[in-house]
Every structure is written in structure tokens, then in C-alpha cells.
Amino acid sequence: MTTVDDVTHPARTGPATRVAAPRPRWRRHAGSVVKYAVLALGAALMILPFADMFVGALRGPADVYANPPRYLPSDPQWGVYARVFRELPMTTWFANSVIVTCIITACQVATSTMAGYALAKYRFAGASPLFRLVVGAQMFPFFLFIIPIFFILRFAPLMGGNDIAGQGGAGLLGTYAALCLPFVVTWYGVFLMRQFFLGIPDDLLEAARLDGASEYRIFRSIMLPLVKPAIATLTLFSFVYHWNEFIWTMTVTRAAPDLQTLPVGIYLLSGAFQTLDQKSLQQAALAVSILPVIVVFLMLQRLFVASNFASGVK
């Protein structure tokens, strides 16, 4: 895609003797018009489907049964958002999304900080093989694990009516554990936290040890406060990812409506949205599923500094 010739190494050039003339004003001007035109066009495309959804949700029967159907609602049906909560098990889905996302995010932050810290700051026999595992495991796509993990949860010994051999009951399927356990550790999170802990000087650790602090106290009282920005980043990533997680949750809750989350519930009811007058209901439900994440994101935006993205690049 990109070919690279010899690099003109800046170090080899001698000291500057002359300041380069600035580009003419009109060229800078034209350049910035093009720049913002490109960005605005892209932004319009980014927003288009969302705008289409908000408009569509407001269409009433008069619009969908017209021939040809009208695009802009003739009489906006604001009541559709109340209908969503009345006619669909929206509160259950919503509550499940919140519960599952919070449990997973908390677990991921806890396990990632602990493991990331150990891998960055201790020289112990497990450090190197575990780090290689963390890096390597990220290369394994999730689809590979869907079938086996489904049955590992199904045949979990002594759980959900199973005997010691994992027979007889339904195991952990049909419980929140089935939704959360496969995600309590994130390889990427461990990796991210390790990179952050590496940046913290060893002197701090040594000084604390000389003061007689226990290893756990050092971690909790000294190290954790230092990586707060990283924890915030990981929290945001985890929250967004698991609020939106779909395939796994759908697989284990297909037959358990009490455990379905927003995306899963909406997907599994898609057949019921096939008739014309149900489509605006579907669009309104989608809007409700999207909004909370956007709100959380906008609230935490300031944490989202560009450098966080670079940490994945090594």
C-alpha cells in the first residue's frame, strides 16, 4: 500500500541557516477549506443513520401506509418512546444491560490492574510466560471460543443442578454468571495496565518497601492512585464494549428473556418488527439502546485523550 524509499534522516542535515518562507496565505486558506470540507462530509455520513433513525421513529400509521410511504413524519408521534417502554420489556433489558456491564467492567478493572502490576513490577517465574500468553491470546478470535465456552458453562460441576460430573442440570447457563464469567479478564486490559505500570519508577516501590509497607498495601495505596487515568480509560473501553456486546449474550440468553440485554432483546424481536406499523417502534427502541452510551461517553470525554490510543501500539 505505502512504499517507503530512503529516509532522509533529519539528524544528518546541518544546522539551519535560513528560515523557510511561509506558504502564501491563499494556499493555506484553500487548504483549510478542503480540510474542513472533508471532515464535515465525513461527519455528515457519521450522523446520517442516526438522524434517519430519529426521524423514522416519529412516523405514524398515516405515513407508513401512504403509497408511496412518506419520509418525513406528517404528524410526529412523540408517544412512541412511551410505547417502547409499554409494549416491549425495555426495563428488563435496560436493567440487565446495566447489571452485566457494571459487573464485567468492575471485574476487568480489578483483574487487569492486579495482573498488569504484577507483570510490570515483579521479577517472578511466571512473569515472562504469562506476558507472552497475554500478548498471544489477543490474537485468538472470539468465534473460536463460543462453542466450547457455551458447553463449559453448561457442564460446570455442581452448578445449577449439575452433579460433580457436570450432568443433570443446566450448569451456569441461564444465570448472570454465564453472561459475565467469560469476560472477567481481558487480555488487552492486562496489557494496557502493564504498559502504564512500567512507566512508574521502581524507586517508589523500593522506598515504600524500606518503610515496611506490605506488598498489597503498596499496590492499593501507592500504585493504584498513580494509574487512575489508565483505570479511567479501561473503564470506558470496557463499559462501551460490554454495553454493546451482542453475539455471546445472544447465544446464552436466546431462551432466557429475563437475562436479555438491550441489543439482544431488540435483535431477537426483529421478527415482530416486520410489519410496517412496527418499524417506528423498532427505531425508537434502537434510539433508547444507543443513548446511554453516548451520554456516558460525553461525560467522560475529557479522559479520552489521544495518547490513550497510542498505548495499544507497540
Binding site: 471485574c107 452448578m159 454468571a177 472477567v184 492499593r220 493504584l224
Partner: peptide, 20 residues
């Protein structure tokens, strides 16, 4: 914030929820 007991607690809480 998070200490080393958080994860086991969370997992235990989930297993509690696991018993139908």
C-alpha cells in the same frame, strides 16, 4: 478504590446469582 478482595467478591456475588 479496588483492592485485591474486589475480584473474588465480585465473582462470589455472581456465583450467588448463579443458583437459580
Amino acid at each position: 478504590m479496588f483492592n485485591q478482595t474486589t475480584a473474588p467478591l465480585a465473582i462470589a456475588a455472581m456465583l450467588g446469582a448463579a443458583i437459580p
